[in-house]
């Protein structure tokens, strides 16, 4: 990974953050804090070309599958997909508008999204089925699944975690957006998820923790995971900050339900 790519990714992260804030300005129903913690992950996957994809043929059989299970957080993927040509950039003005297909929780009627999202704890199990299906088809494609750490409270995830390890789904890569805040409080005050890495390891997954806002580290970790075909599913625990980059929002225990005023967005984007 050269300096040029690192800078390119950083520039894209800045742009995605601005575009996501602008979407929030026209669509205040979007959960902005949740959308701000996973931006580096999206940038690395798409602009770092860790995903195989084809915007002109979103269902291309050889694509890597990417499931954005943390539903609200998928809004920051809209600008990425528009930029790559899945749909027109003008569509970014239509988020949450009457008659639009771009909701505050993206579903698979939007090109580039694989599943129905918003009901937490389902994406990983579906991803297991896809990973198993790809193996049976002798496909070399990967399945990436993004979940929030709060989403891991859903017990169905742990059914899937056991399943993936037993069936040696080494084409499955889970990314946990570990922003440490659910809707009402810090996870440590709800039910402490620590030690999360060791939980996955105990379930026979390969697990790694990185700073989820450090594009180089996220890139290297995911790239290593792709090369590892050692029979274990892999999880990247990306330590992130919910509401990243927005004073007052960032790491606020209630930031999930907080919105920004239009003038705040203008001020942040102008910076």
């Amino acid at each position: 990974m050269n300096e040029k790519l690192i800078q390119f990714l950083k520039n894209k992260v800045k742009w995605i953050r601005e575009e996501t804030l602008k979407i929030h300005k026209i669509a205040p129903d979007t959960r902005i804090a949740s959308c701000l913690s996973d931006i580096e992950i999206f940038a690395v996957l798409y602009y770092g070309k860790l995903l195989k994809f084809n915007p002109k043929n979103p269902k291309w059989d050889n694509r890597d599958r990417f499931i954005v299970s943390k539903g609200h957080g998928g809004v920051s993927l809209y600008p990425v997909l528009a930029d790559l040509g899945y749909f027109g950039k003008n569509e970014l003005n239509n988020v949450c508008r009457n008659g639009s297909r771009f909701g505050s929780i993206p579903d698979s009627m939007v090109e580039g999204f694989e599943t129905i999202n918003g009901s937490l704890g389902q994406g990983l199990g579906v991803g297991c089925g896809m990973a198993l299906g790809l193996k049976r088809k002798k496909s070399k494609s990967y399945v990436f699944v993004l979940v929030g750490d709060g989403e891991l409270y859903e017990g169905s995830n742990w059914e899937a975690i056991m399943f993936a390890a037993h069936h040696q789904l080494d084409n499955l890569i889970l990314i946990v957006d570990n922003n440490k805040i659910a809707m009402l409080d810090y996870c440590k005050n709800i039910i402490n998820l620590k030690p999360l890495e060791n939980k996955f390891k105990a379930f026979n997954w390969k697990a790694k923790v990185v700073n989820g806002h450090h594009v180089e580290k996220v890139y290297h970790a995911l790239n290593e995971f792709k090369k590892d075909k050692g029979g274990r599913p892999k999880v990247l625990i990306a330590d992130t900050k919910k509401g990243k980059g927005v004073p007052g929002l960032e790491n606020n225990s209630l930031c999930h339900v907080m919105s920004l005023k239009p003038e705040e967005v203008d001020r942040l984007v102008a910076k």
Binding site: Q122, L124, G125, G129, R136, K137
Partner: peptide, 9 residues
Amino acid sequence: NVATGLAKE
């Protein structure tokens, strides 16, 4: 969920 993933493939 696994059934859905397989059906999707």
